[in-house]
């Protein structure tokens, strides 16, 4: 209740944060480095990268028909990653609140 006078400011902050996240997910994601990252690189150098399962449980989920890793299927290659970023960002935005009310 003490928070009331600040509410428009809270909304502004949340919108700024969300806007930043969406800009990153949509416009910066195509520029991400394609180099193998830390664990990737170590697994390749040490030769245990082949231990990674090919047919993973996640590929048996219905989402696998929609996304191939961070790419939306069935759309031009140039927008696949930005659209996956957009959908993923909005999904995680909504989930913490749902989790709390569900619990």
């Amino acid at each position: 209740m003490a928070n009331r006078p600040h509410q428009p400011q809270n909304q502004a902050f949340v919108l700024m944060g969300l806007g930043t996240a969406l800009l990153i997910a949509i416009f910066l994601s195509p520029f991400a480095s394609s180099d193998p990252d830390g664990l990737d690189r170590v697994s390749q150098d040490q030769g245990f990268d082949k231990q990674a399962q090919e047919d993973t449980p996640a590929k048996k989920l219905p989402f696998y028909a929609v996304f191939e890793e961070y790419g939306l299927r069935g759309v031009p290659a140039g927008v696949a990653t930005p659209l996956a970023g957009l959908i993923g960002t909005l999904t995680v935005l909504a989930l913490p609140g749902d989790l709390e009310s569900f619990w």
Partner: peptide, 29 residues
């Protein structure tokens, strides 16, 4: 107070985790 901040924090971290930055030696993080 917390729930909207949690959502926006999750959104930012998800988006930022998509962005691999290169580090010297042909690796990224």
């Amino acid at each position: 107070r917390t729930v909207p901040l949690m959502g926006v924090c999750a959104a930012f971290i998800f988006a930022a985790q998509m962005i691999n930055f290169p580090i010297p030696g042909g690796t990224s993080g």
